[in-house]
Simulated scan of single mutants.
Amino acid sequence: MNDDTSKAGGDLRAVTLHNGVTMPTLAFGCAFGDWVGRTDFQGFLPEQAWRAVSLALDSGYRAFDGARVYGTERIVGTLLGQRFASGALTREDLFITTKLAHPAAPPHINISHKRTWDPDKVDDIAQRVRDDMVDTLDDLGLGYVDLLLMHWPGGFGQHTSPDPDFPRQARATIWRTFCELADKGAARAIGVSNFTVHHLRQLLEDIPEPERRPTVNQVEIHPYCRNPELEDFCRTQGIVVTAYAPFASGALGMLQDPTLTAIAERHGKTVGQIVLRWHVQSGRTALPKTSKAERMAENQAIDDFALSDDEMQAIDALGTGEARRTCPDPSFVA
């Protein structure tokens, strides 16, 4: 086993956002269900959160990544409330992320229309964001979240507004509302999700105050899905990149990849641990998710080894060429 951890640099367990808020490097993902076509049912299954989130808390996770659309916020809030009531945890022990402004899902996906909306289909974008935030905090049973993200930069289909600049204007309206919520203390930090360089450049032009720029951009990244240009741009702007679907949502056969399995055998680690170590050594944070307690423990045990430069480059090479995604490609969002 390679015990040289000096190659990673920095703190493996936390990062500091540009507004001074400290965010754990690993958070437990709270989206449950199937959206990659492994089963006949396409949609979210929030009932799976009861057991998984309980195990995650028992396993030491203190950061949880959710979203209004996942339908798990009431469950997460109830489980946290039980720990608060027993005195086992305090609010300050936790880092809670949520996401708002998810577009309407395709017809075959079983996601509630009450939790999703397209900006061109609502009368008042800012008020819809405010109302959703109230519902989210009510379900969580919290007075604030630690990180609030704009879930998508726009809808999956063509918008109906005759103004070609409407998607950009809608993003700016949502972002200004996020800034308002942060100013009121409803969120300690604000960021975006599924934003490309194009979306980020526009947002930074429309809201140019440096302190108002996103703290985080949460995007799909795994060894088969990389975007070095996006990561480089975020790095120059001081925006932390968070990888969702860090294991490719269990799809694409990635966890059986021979390159990854060979590196795992060399270090005496699981493929999941190798992938997470690759993420953090690359300067990203990540959102691993599993329903098994032993995997939860393993996923957090990645600070006793380091990947060599050659190993990092070998994993990077798996993602050359066209990205293999398990979620929609945000580059198609205007």
Results as ranks from 00 to 15, higher is better:
residue 219 V to D: 06
residue 129 V to L: 02
residue 200 L to I: 10
residue 51 R to D: 15
residue 233 F to L: 05
residue 238 G to K: 10
residue 14 A to T: 13
residue 172 A to S: 15
residue 180 E to N: 08
residue 177 T to Y: 04
residue 220 E to H: 06
residue 245 A to N: 09
residue 324 R to I: 09
residue 92 E to R: 15
residue 170 A to M: 08
residue 65 D to L: 08
residue 3 D to W: 10
residue 170 A to E: 06
residue 333 V to R: 04
residue 47 E to D: 15
residue 172 A to M: 09
residue 244 Y to D: 07
residue 84 F to H: 05
residue 130 R to G: 01
residue 95 F to C: 09
residue 202 Q to G: 11
residue 229 E to S: 12
residue 292 K to I: 11
residue 251 A to D: 15
residue 201 R to H: 10
residue 131 D to H: 09
residue 7 K to P: 00
residue 66 G to W: 00
residue 273 Q to Y: 03
residue 240 V to G: 01
residue 244 Y to P: 05
residue 53 V to L: 15
residue 146 D to W: 02
residue 248 A to S: 12
residue 56 A to E: 02
residue 273 Q to I: 03
residue 221 I to F: 03
residue 310 D to H: 08
residue 270 T to K: 02
residue 198 H to M: 10
residue 55 L to H: 10
residue 162 P to A: 09
residue 43 G to C: 05
residue 235 R to D: 12
residue 224 Y to Q: 03
residue 8 A to M: 14
residue 235 R to Q: 14
residue 270 T to I: 03
residue 42 Q to S: 14
residue 4 D to E: 10
residue 115 R to A: 13
residue 42 Q to L: 14
residue 332 F to V: 14
residue 111 I to E: 13
residue 18 H to Q: 09
residue 14 A to W: 01
residue 309 D to V: 14
residue 285 T to Y: 03
residue 44 F to G: 01
residue 270 T to F: 05
residue 197 V to P: 02
residue 187 A to F: 02
residue 20 G to I: 07
residue 9 G to F: 06
residue 76 V to H: 04
residue 261 T to K: 15
residue 269 K to S: 06
residue 181 L to A: 08
residue 229 E to D: 15
residue 136 T to I: 09
residue 249 S to A: 15
residue 105 A to M: 15
residue 122 V to F: 02
residue 311 E to Q: 12
residue 328 P to Y: 05
residue 86 S to G: 07
residue 144 Y to C: 11
residue 82 Q to D: 13
residue 36 V to Y: 06
residue 227 N to D: 15
residue 159 H to P: 11
residue 5 T to F: 02
residue 157 G to I: 07
residue 72 T to Q: 13
residue 309 D to H: 14
residue 287 L to G: 07
residue 168 R to I: 12
residue 191 G to H: 03
residue 204 L to P: 05
residue 124 D to H: 14
residue 324 R to A: 12
residue 36 V to F: 05
residue 287 L to A: 08
residue 87 G to C: 10
residue 33 G to S: 07
residue 188 R to D: 04
residue 122 V to N: 02
residue 278 W to F: 03
residue 70 Y to A: 08
residue 21 V to A: 11
residue 31 A to M: 15
residue 144 Y to S: 15
